[in-house]
Amino acid sequence: MEKRATREGYGEGLCALAEVRPDLLVLDADLAAATKTNIFKKKYPEKHYDCGIAEANMMGVAAGIASTGKLVFASSFAMFAAGRAFEIVRNSICYPNLNVKIGATHAGISVGEDGATHQCNEDIALMRAIPNMTVINPADYVEAKAAVLAMADYVGPTYMRFGRLAVPIYNDEATYKFEVGKGITIKDGKDVTIIATGLMVAEAMDAANALHEQGIDARIINIHTIKPIDRDIIVKAAKETGKIITVEEHSVIGGLGSAVGDVVLEECPVPVIKLGVKDVFGHSGSAKDLLKEYGLCAENIVAVTKAALGK
């Protein structure tokens, strides 16, 4: 299967978006080559503004631009967009409810070699806690590009999370349609539900195949929109399969697992097992080695699922 990073979908998505939204402006903080906004910059140099290494100011500038009615994306690594600039995102973007889109790349431990200072495993938790904020975490290149394009007519502060690592493209660009807030059942199943987000979706799909061979019929759901979350698809899965496993390249505190858990607790309490980074910092290494070490791979999803089912 062809592999591409979701951040490339971001860069390409911005180009596609500019065709339908001529008012689009893109800001970056000295990371255009890495966030892939340089793809957009090459095509639309007059619509791309570098803010330098100053993420706090960039978020405020984005808020000011949005207040004048233009569509604006502010880009940086997840660590700096959600982390360093958190309070500006909260007070200058979300409180006044301005239409700023945040393109945050290099999320999670799959950043790899740069190590713990750059591996942001807390951004989903931070961003989903802010009122008015939408949080989107696409699973592959096609979904990433479609999600960006969907911002043409989706109004309101939105945090979009992209990865550095090239991951399998399993969606078909010709037919794929992105709907904010809609979970996707990738594979039906009756024994257990695995809910994944971002680059863990491909791992969950591999896990489902392995489980199938071992006689376990797992349902696979892709939650690309973590907020507002698709409550119906989660409740249905809880009722029909009785057990849920969540998988995310993010801390188990406050991310997809917590969001799914909130819904299940309120509407249909069943066991929810959260796979993610377990309240620890990462360290340097290749993305592949790190994902394996932290249990964010198909093999571990299979093992955890079997254990949960007592098999």
Partner: peptide
């Protein structure tokens, strides 16, 4: 910063 965004 917001004022800068408006002005830009």
């Amino acid at each position: 910063s917001v004022a800068c965004g408006m002005a830009l």
